[in-house]
C-alpha cells in the first residue's frame, strides 16, 4: 500500500504544480486544492509506513469506556491531528482564493495572471 500511496502522492503533486504554473487564475485555484490533498496524504503516509515499508490497518486511537489506556497497537494519532489542522487551513485558503478570483475577474476583466502583474511592479 505505501508504494502505491507514494506513487499517488507523486502524481498529485505533479498535477497540482502543473495547474499552479498555469496562467489562468482559476486553474491556479484547482492546483491549490490538489496540493492540499497531496500534503495531507504525504503526512499520513510518512507516519503510517513502518520501517520495513509495510502498512497496516490499525484501530483508531480511542480509549474504551472504563479503561485508562489503549491496550495493543493503534494508529498514531499525531499525524491525524496535524492533518485535521491542515484540512481546515486549506479550506480557509481555498475559500479566500475563490472569492479573490471572482473579485479580481470582476474588476480586471481577465484571469490571465500575466496581465495582472501591474500591481506587483
Amino acid at each position: 500500500m505505501s508504494l502505491l500511496l507514494a506513487a499517488i502522492i507523486g502524481m498529485l503533486f505533479a498535477s497540482a504544480l502543473y495547474m499552479m504554473m498555469r496562467r489562468s487564475f482559476v486553474k491556479l485555484t484547482i492546483g491549490l486544492i490538489l496540493i492540499g490533498h497531496s500534503a495531507n496524504l504525504l503526512i499520513f503516509t510518512c507516519a503510517a509506513t513502518r520501517r520495513d515499508g509495510s502498512m497496516e490497518r490499525l484501530p483508531p486511537g480511542l480509549i474504551e469506556e472504563g479503561q485508562t489506556r489503549i491496550e495493543g497497537e493503534f494508529a498514531d494519532p499525531l499525524p491525524f491531528a496535524l492533518i485535521l489542522t491542515a484540512i481546515v487551513i486549506a479550506f480557509a485558503i481555498t475559500a479566500f482564493t475563490l472569492v479573490l478570483v471572482k473579485r479580481a475577474y470582476q474588476e480586471v476583466g481577465t484571469d490571465d495572471l500575466d496581465n495582472m502583474r501591474t500591481t506587483d511592479r
Binding site: L5, A6, I9, G10, T45, T49
Partner: peptide, 11 residues
C-alpha cells in the same frame, strides 16, 4: 522526487 521522498521517509 516527492514519491521517492515519501518512500524514504516512511522507512
Amino acid at each position: 522526487v516527492m514519491a521517492c521522498l515519501v518512500l524514504a521517509a516512511g522507512s
